[in-house]
């Protein structure tokens, strides 16, 4: 459907809906439920240079209208992702996919991105400088403009694919970090990653999450996400992918009105695995209701 099409860093997408990294695996669990080719694309599970088991369990805590996770970038490592996961992904998904990359040193990011750059199906590299669940990595790059810019430059040097830097909301001035990434050559910005959160079990008087804190996501964070997307989209001249608590077609439109070119859906996939398919199906009717002819007309 023409009216749902959007452009993200020079790649046309059938619609703006993108399941967010870490909530969609490598796609094949969801492909058992519906044809995932209806999606704009999806961002696959965060990939690192080395295999990672991640954090001890419990890794999940429920919250009002949301959840906290502290998975800690569990993944089989980039070589195995390319050797084992991408061939399986290719069987059920036939569009450019977004490769999500994380690291613990600038060289890690460059190494992983250089390998993924050679994969034909990878359309975009989403560089996560914002994982709150690992020590000494991830978010530490995303909370400092110089470090975020350094990661961006290192990745840009090894790839010709569009590089989208995924930012953390756990900062005082997200605009300065977004601008630093833009100046360092980023082709796009995605935000927001999870908000650092914590729950305590009244019975045990101890944190619910084994790692004490984790990333808070779900509909509860949507207003924070809209605000930050708005701030960043009005400060940079590269495309912004909005995410954070999106669970309906109305939320997608609101994110786009805040300045997002495309929209990621995260936690909601875990409680309603059909949510992205339903959003895409509902978008035309909701657009009609608000007099929106095409999504491209919402562009800033």
């Amino acid at each position: 459907m023409e009216r749902l099409k959007v452009d993200l860093c020079g790649i046309e997408m059938d619609n703006p809906v993108i399941p967010a990294s870490g909530t969609f695996g490598y796609g094949y669990e969801f492909a058992e439920l519906y044809d995932i080719n209806v999606l704009g694309t999806f961002s696959f599970k965060g990939t690192t240079k080395e295999p990672r088991f991640g954090n001890p369990t419990p890794r999940i805590a429920e919250c009002t209208s949301g959840m906290i996770n502290a998975v800690g970038l569990q993944n089989p490592g980039v070589e195995k992702v390319i050797g084992t996961e991408l061939p399986k992904l290719k069987k059920c998904f036939h569009k450019p996919v977004m490769a999500n990359v994380s690291g613990f040193a600038i060289d890690d990011y460059a190494y992983t991105c250089a390998l993924l750059d050679k994969e034909e199906q990878v359309g975009w590299l989403e560089v996560n400088v914002s994982c709150p669940n690992v020590h000494g990595g991830g978010m530490s790059f995303g909370t400092n403009p110089e470090a975020a810019a350094a990661v961006t430059r290192a990745v840009k040097a090894v790839t010709t694919k569009p590089v989208i830097v995924k930012l953390s909301p756990n900062v005082t001035d997200i605009v300065s970090i977004a601008k630093a990434c833009e100046e360092a050559g980023a082709d796009g910005i995605s935000l927001i990653n999870t908000l650092l959160g914590m729950r305590i079990d009244l019975k045990t008087r101890k944190p619910v999450i084994a790692n004490t804190m984790g990333g808070f996501s779900g509909p509860a964070i949507f207003p924070v996400a809209v605000r930050m997307v708005y701030q960043v989209a009005h400060a940079v001249n590269i495309p912004v992918v909005g995410m954070g608590g999106v669970s309906t077609a109305e939320d997608v439109l609101e994110m786009m009105m805040a300045g997002a070119k495309a929209v990621e859906v995260g936690a909601q996939n875990l409680v309603d695995p059909f949510v992205c398919k339903n959003i895409i199906e509902n978008l035309p009717a909701v657009m009609d209701k608000y007099g929106i002819k095409t999504l491209k007309e919402l562009a800033l």
Binding site: E29, F53, T57, N69, V71, L270
Partner: peptide, 17 residues
């Protein structure tokens, strides 16, 4: 038994060695 996010293998919330 483990605390789960999704229950169908997507979130890695309940992994064990």
């Amino acid at each position: 038994e483990e605390r789960m996010g999704c229950g169908f293998g997507a979130c890695m919330g309940c992994s064990c060695h």
